[in-house]
Simulated assay, not measured.
Amino acid sequence: MKGVVLDDAAVLLADDDNVATSIRDLETGRSIASDDFPTDRSVLELAEPIAFGHKLAVASIDAGEPVRKYGEVIGSATERIEPGEWVHTHNCESNRGRGDLAEGSA
C-alpha cells in the first residue's frame, strides 16, 4: 500500500499503521467509513477534534505499545489510546532521534 484515503478525511499510509493523518480539520463526532482500517471495523467515530495534518488512532494502542506511521514505529503510547482519539505529544512519546533508546545503549 502507498496510502489509502479514508472517507475523504484522513490517509492511512501503510497496512500495519495504527494511526492515520488527517487531510482536513475534523470535528468531534465525525464518522469515518472505510473498508481499509487495520482492524475489522468499518466505521470510526472521532472522540475529539483533529486538526489538519495531525494523527488519529485507527486502532487501540495500549500504553507502551508502538505507534506506527509510514509502516515504521514513530513513537510509543504513554497511555492507552482509543480509536478516534488524537495522537500527539500528550499521549505519545517520539522514539525518533532518541540515542538513549538505541539498541545496546546504557
Rank of each mutant, 00 (worst) to 15 (best):
G64M: 03
R96S: 11
A20W: 05
A47H: 11
G71H: 01
R68H: 14
V43R: 13
T28M: 08
D8E: 13
C92P: 00
E85P: 01
T78F: 02
A14P: 07
I74G: 01
M1Y: 13
D15A: 15
S34M: 00
E45G: 06
E93A: 15
N91L: 07
D36K: 08
E72M: 15
L44R: 02
R98Y: 02
I74F: 03
R24Q: 13
V67P: 10
G53M: 00
E82N: 11
R41C: 02
S60G: 03
S94M: 01
T21N: 00
A47E: 11
L46G: 06
L6K: 00
N95S: 15
R80S: 12
S60I: 00
N95E: 06
S34K: 04
K55P: 11
G99Y: 07
I23T: 13
M1A: 15
C92A: 14
H54P: 08
G75L: 09
G64T: 04
V73G: 03
S105E: 14
T89G: 09
D15G: 15
G29L: 01
G53R: 04
L44P: 00
S34Y: 09
I23L: 12
M1V: 13
D36V: 07
S60P: 09
P83R: 00
E45C: 04
N91F: 04
M1C: 11
I81Y: 02
G75M: 06
I61L: 01
G3S: 07
S94Y: 05
A51F: 07
N91D: 05
D36T: 08
V73M: 05
P83V: 07
P83A: 01
H88C: 07
Y70R: 04
G64F: 06
R30S: 12
S34H: 06
K69S: 05
R98E: 15
D16K: 14
L101Q: 12
L56E: 05
I50G: 01
A77N: 03
N95I: 14
